[in-house]
Amino acid sequence: MMDNIIEVRGVKTSFEERIIHDTLTLSIPKGSIYGLLGPSGCGKTTLLREMVMLQEFSGGEIEILGHKLGKIEYKEAMELRQQWGVLFQSGALFSSLSLKDNIALPLVEYSDLSAAMINEIVKFKIGIVGLKQEDANLYPSQISGGMRKKAALARALAMDPKLLFLDEPTSGLDPISAREFDALILKLRSLLNLTIVMVSHDLQSVYDTLDKVAVIDNKKIIYEGDLKNILSVENKFIKTFFKGMGRI
């Protein structure tokens, strides 16, 4: 069981009468970059939010790093939260703190490190995501969208998590920054030995980075596996989305 870092078993979700997920099952292997794909409104982000305990599911079970989320204790949940990093679509940096303080926040709260040591770590994280050291004192409102994503990634990486969740990491970025971001994610995976789960709409990024994908459509998983065999599935979304893949 240890080679799968996340197991989703028969998860059901419904908002009042509207059913979003009908028994989803998937498994995310350790060390992989795993993509959740599907047409808009199919519930990719909802599933991601369920994985990071922001939303409750109505049936089934999700197991992350050996913790079952269905009936998780408060303390256990708090411990689990320190083992992952989450990058939100808009970055969600704390607007009242500078970039440096945003990245330092988890370290200040959860570790007994000295201020000087934390400063070193923050500098390293800023460097590793490709930000300049002189940007560290800027506030989230003063920087561009691409920088905000990088800073949010640095914050997600602050505690050296084993697991990273990315919600549309390249959306809102220009193509050049998006490709840089893809390269950054690949670099980080090999450097830090991460498992990455992402929701994406960016075909190039899907093709460049993902090892394994799950496609959700019509409340179900219609495909799970690598990208090579994906066109064998008869589905409108897959046919349209991956039509251009041969050319890339």
Binding site: M53, F88, S90, S95, F165
Partner: peptide
């Protein structure tokens, strides 16, 4: 709205 609350929660800051 800016998802800062969500971010806090995922980082384990209740």
């Amino acid at each position: 709205i800016t998802q800062e609350l969500d971010a806090m929660q995922t980082m384990g800051f209740d």
